[in-house]
Design a binder for these strands. Structure first.
Length: 426
DNA sequence: TCTGGGGTCCTAGGACCC
DNA sequence: TCTGGGGTCCTAGGACCC
């Protein structure tokens, strides 16, 4: 093999982003919350060490966080997305090929050097991202994506011990087998709770035992996905780098409500807002969609009643204009709404997505160009004067009560809004 | 009282076609 | 009594990821 794969993983990414701009947070225990300030979705090392789990509802950990004097921040996705882009821009100056896997991880290919040289290269990557963007990253290297993921787990573990370098290179066989024997099968990338349970029932508890299973058994129990995984752990490359990024299949906009909602009119407005935002996102990505589904749900935890339903519709033609999706969301709500329950969340999903091409008007109805010109004007105004300045009336007016979200403690948009740039004082 | 918001891929089964 | 053998497309649901 003339190349290896490195996983570049930003450490406690959201927390690190906040620390770039607020030095007072460095060294202070910090968590970042999900939308609506519900769950803990990023934790500094000290908070992790205190046993606060990922995804935990914040209300269960208030006391512990207070005792640690932890900073509790609402999420600021515009900031994180921007810094993520800067991290990949730095990597592009150094690596051969790059796949952006998620907001805080990417895969790159590196030349197949010996272990020491790879470690040194990993260090250089790490240093450059830290110096140029201010975000600490781990670099985990292996012959395949799945083994790079294993290496990342190992690097994380080293970090916890306190003296890890943040760079880990998979050893060759037979040391690799030893490493995999020490890796819990549930910690393998792609093996979730359900497969883990099945495997344990068959006496398989380590990654090494998993990759040694017979192919037909894996295939029939875990589909080809499982088989690819096992082969990757054997060093056989089955998952290629997705260089251009896959074409989008679907697009979801949804939010939990700050407080329960019963009124149909409010659900209608929420769905209209989501439909409008989803269409805006389509236009940003130069896509059009034809399918829409709308869903509403009550709480899903705790004692019943729980209620959730969803309905779908197909538009006459592909479009990225807001009005057809908004109209459709209203009809879909009529189909699924039941009076009575207190709803906690609503959203829309667009599907049947493809790239926008000119002149895709249908034989029926208004020509698309009208909508297109209108939407261009809308985007221009919102681009200049701020998101939400104008939009369909069904989505509510800018001055309306913002019932959609609780966000008590958001940092500034340091890098994406002129009026919130950091200020340097001499 | 308070539990996120995105995504992807795979399979089975039904409808429909010749 | 006997009742083909392919295809394709679509959808629902399950599994996983960050």
């Amino acid at each position: 093999m003339d190349s290896v794969i490195a996983l570049i993983d930003c450490q406690a990414f959201y927390v690190s982003c906040e620390r770039v701009f607020d030095p007072a947070l460095r060294g202070r225990p910090t968590v970042v919350l999900s939308n609506n300030d519900g769950c803990i979705i990023a934790r500094s090392a000290s908070v992790k060490a205190a046993g606060v789990p990922m995804g935990a509802p914040v209300f269960k950990w208030r006391d512990e966080l207070e005792a640690m004097d932890a900073a509790v921040l609402s999420s600021n996705y515009a900031l994180y997305a921007d810094l993520s882009r800067r991290v990949t821009a730095v990597l592009e100056t150094m690596s051969i090929d790059l796949e952006r896997y998620s907001i805080d991880e990417c895969f790159v290919t590196l030349p197949a050097l010996d272990r020491d040289a790879l470690r040194a290269l990993g260090e250089r990557i790490r240093r450059r991202v830290r110096d140029w963007v201010g975000i600490p990253v781990r670099v985990a290297i292996g012959p395949t994506k799945s083994l790079a993921k294993i290496a990342d787990e190992k690097a994380k573990a080293d970090k916890r011990a306190g003296d890890g370098t943040g760079v880990y290179v998979c050893p060759p066989e037979p040391d690799l087998d030893v490493l995999l024997y020490r890796t819990d099968v549930g910690d393998v990338w792609g093996i979730g709770p359900s497969y883990e349970e099945t495997l344990r029932e068959h006496g398989v508890t380590t990654a090494a035992e998993f990759r040694a299973l017979p192919d037909p058994w894996i295939r029939s129990t875990m589909t080809v996905v499982g088989l690819r995984l096992a082969r990757e752990l054997r060093g056989q490359r089955c998952l290629d780098l997705d260089l251009v990024g896959p074409d989008r299949q679907s697009l979801v906009r949804s939010r939990s409500f700050g407080a329960p909602v019963e009124a149909k009119a409010e659900l209608r407005q929420a769905l209209a807002k989501h439909a409008q935002r989803a269409a805006e996102k389509l236009r940003e990505e130069d896509l059009v969609a034809r399918g829409i589904s709308a869903f509403i749900t009550t709480k899903t935890h705790g004692p019943p009643p729980h209620y959730a339903d969803e309905a779908q519709a197909t538009l006459d033609e592909h479009t990225a204009a807001a009005p057809p999706f908004v109209r459709s969301s209203r009809r879909l709500l009529d189909a699924i709404y039941r009076a009575g329950p207190a709803y906690r969340k609503a959203g829309v999903m667009l599907y049947a997505i493809r790239p926008r091409r000119p002149h895709q008007g249908s034989l029926f109805g208004r020509p698309v160009q009208d909508d297109e010109a209108l939407m261009q004007a809308v985007d221009r105004i919102n681009g200049t004067m701020g998101r939400g300045t104008i939009g369909v009336a069904a989505a509510g007016l800018p001055g309306d009560r913002d019932w959609t979200m609780t966000r008590d403690n958001t940092s500034q948009h340091y890098t994406t809004r002129w009026d919130e740039l950091p200020v340097a004082r001499a």
